[in-house]
Amino acid sequence: MKIVVASGKGGTGKSMVAGNLAFALSSGTPVTLVDCDVEEPDLHLFFPEGPCANTPVHIKVPHINPDVCTLCGECGDFCAFGALLVGKDRVLFFPEQCHSCGGCMIACPAGAIEEADMPVGTITVSHPEKNLTLVTGTLNEGAIQSVAVIRAAKMMAGNTGWIIYDASPGTSCPVVETLEGTEFCILVTESTPFGLHDLALALDVTMQMGIPSGVVINRSDGRDEKAQQFCREHKIPVLATIPFDRRIAEVQGSGTLIARIDPSWKDRFSALAKDCLALWEGS
């Protein structure tokens, strides 16, 4: 089953839920955990370091052959992203603007453009626990091609068994890319006006994509009436409520999983996975 852990607001505890969920599941069945928060991937911090395999993610970018180029300007005119500039004696390419659409190559009447690979990120695969594969997408610093790296990470994770995807915060294209082709979404929120406001935005995205979802209220201080009421009104189940507890914050902050050190939490996360499965099967 493919589950995404998402939230509109950042810092609500997505990684905490995704990491613990995958860890709890892995005691009984093979799990792949995919870090799709490629701008700030942090899940690896919660697992022991070990051997890992790195694969670069490339996008195709134009390579202009100056001997063939006639400086006609067609490529620069075509590029919708301002990545090509036709000067008096050469064409300049600004790779950080390139969306890798391939249009300049088609637009060039002289056949002066070929494509070359440009690295924009890395996929790291490791097996930090028995039964658990961790796939981490990391966007190169200064690059903007988050979507390409997410797509590559998901591809690397494959299609079999339990797959848990940790999304980036927000509601825009990286989140859509993460959700695409998945079966269920856990929306993590916190019982604050910020959390609730952004939960509503995130729910808009999952509903638009037709992906069933449930809510986890994290760091609850017991004043969750508004979040509960919102979930009732929108007919989304509250899957779990995790209280604010300095101990959990400390465990999480120091890079440990609460399910690893406390069996009762492991059971709670296993139960959460079962609930997701039941909801998906019933949907």
């Binding site: 950042g10 810092g11 990684s15 928060d37 490629v38 701008e39 700030e40 942090d42 911090l45 966007l139 610093e141 200064g142 690059a143 903007i144 988050s146 980036s168 915060p169 927000g170 825009s172 990286p174 999480q252 902050g253 120091s254 890079g255």
Partner: peptide
């Protein structure tokens, strides 16, 4: 949040940023 497209667009042309962090391993990373 993040370090991708919206962040780069936000920071380009600004004079100063205040980076708000929290004491966790992820925060530092």
């Amino acid at each position: 949040p993040g370090t991708g497209c919206p962040l780069i667009s936000t920071v380009s042309g600004t004079d100063v940023v205040i980076a708000v962090t929290e004491p966790s391993r992820s925060g530092l990373h």
